[in-house]
Design a protein around this nucleic acid. Structure first.
Lengths: 210, 210
DNA sequence: AACTGTGAAGTTTTTCACAGCC
DNA sequence: GGCTGTGAAAAACTTCACAGTT
């Protein structure tokens, strides 16, 4: 949504690649080895032309008459998205939400591993959350720097989100996934994405009858 | 993302209204009473022209030379999005994620209230989650119908998401917020939105250096 | 026969820029 | 002077449709 880098490729295309990847992994679990833009499109409710055009930005991954080799396409997309490695991710906020995030097993195998959990509250600091001991927010700078962490998930109250984000950026974080229901301002070279279930719900209620 | 209804207004515009609403509530908390498309745009990283054009779809909410009355604009947007009422929402899945969702206090005051928590697992059924007693998935049809619930949040494993969604739709649910990392297929008149943190993270890693 | 990759066409979305109002 | 609302222009995005390949 923010900095588009000098890359030629539209951000909106990049945003669809993780969806393709997710659908492809699914197909793989179903023991399939080949798919087509049509099959993918049907599952994702995206036109087949769109999928072909998106993929063609990165080279010819498919074969005419045949379709796409699932395993090969997964490899290629993982490389494009740079998730053929495991990124260490810091979680800030050890409330209900931060704890749930820290326990979520869905990050594994998709390129991410939680490395730390931070909180401000003295009651929380030192407590165990899964395999982690909650660290004080005041240690963010040193820990993030020394461990070279580039990605953080923010699960603090809205009031604290901006100041914690500032801390993270100063410590070298380049991508923030913000669960707090508030917009935060970061430098143009820092990536930011939002998760706020209420915005999705409100989007849908527009269309509900009654 | 799916059915666009017969409404004239682009879905992409509808999707931005909840963001405007969120920013406006924030401004209100800061004791402001008036704002402008420029101020909103700065906070949301959206151009002021975009905001003016979006809002103009619904009538002239602002005053030239002055800007927008925050309280009035909030009221209007809430009405447009139909969140000037409280929608009852069912949660399906009482694992870590479903429990965290059920405890999340951010739904209050934004138009939603959790009404039920369901799970399949016999160990979960009958247990308390916050103020709720976990109900069996087999009771979805009857409870959703009799309580007239129109919205559900899905927090079950990917494998079960489609079949649970089918149940929900059959019971009369018109909008599903799916937290399972899998695409599901629903009738065109049912709204569906997704929350998958990994897709956001993978979107951002594209831009990270190294 | 089935499918990709892609220019060209079509559509949607965003930005520009300014008349009109406070 | 500052701001909205909006046609017109520009840009971005999607779909079409088909040549070319397996």
């Amino acid at each position: 949504m923010s900095a588009k880098s000098q890359s030629e490729i539209p951000d909106i295309v990049i945003g669809r690649l993780p969806l393709y990847l997710r659908a492809l992994r699914r197909l793989q679990q179903e023991e399939k080895s080949v798919t087509s833009s049509h099959e993918l499109g049907r599952r994702l409710d995206i036109s087949s032309a769109q999928i072909r055009k998106d993929l063609s930005h990165f080279g010819g991954f498919g074969k005419q008459g045949t379709g796409y080799q699932i395993e090969y396409l997964i490899d290629q997309l993982q490389e494009v998205l740079q998730v053929n490695q495991e990124w260490m991710v810091a979680v800030v906020g050890a409330g209900n939400l931060g704890i749930a995030i820290s326990h979520y097993r869905g990050f594994q195998d998709r390129g991410f591993r939680i490395a730390n959990v931070f909180d401000v509250s003295p009651q929380k600091i030192g407590q165990r959350v899964g395999e982690f001991v909650v660290q004080p927010v005041s240690a963010i700078r040193e820990i993030i720097r020394s461990e070279g962490i580039k990605i953080a998930m923010l699960a603090v109250p809205a009031e604290e989100a901006q100041s914690v984000a500032d801390l993270l950026v100063e410590a070298g974080v380049q991508a923030i996934l913000n669960y707090a229901p508030i917009n935060i301002i970061v430098p143009a070279d820092v990536q930011i994405q939002y998760i706020d279930p209420v915005t999705h719900l409100q989007h849908m209620t527009f269309y509900l009858d009654e």
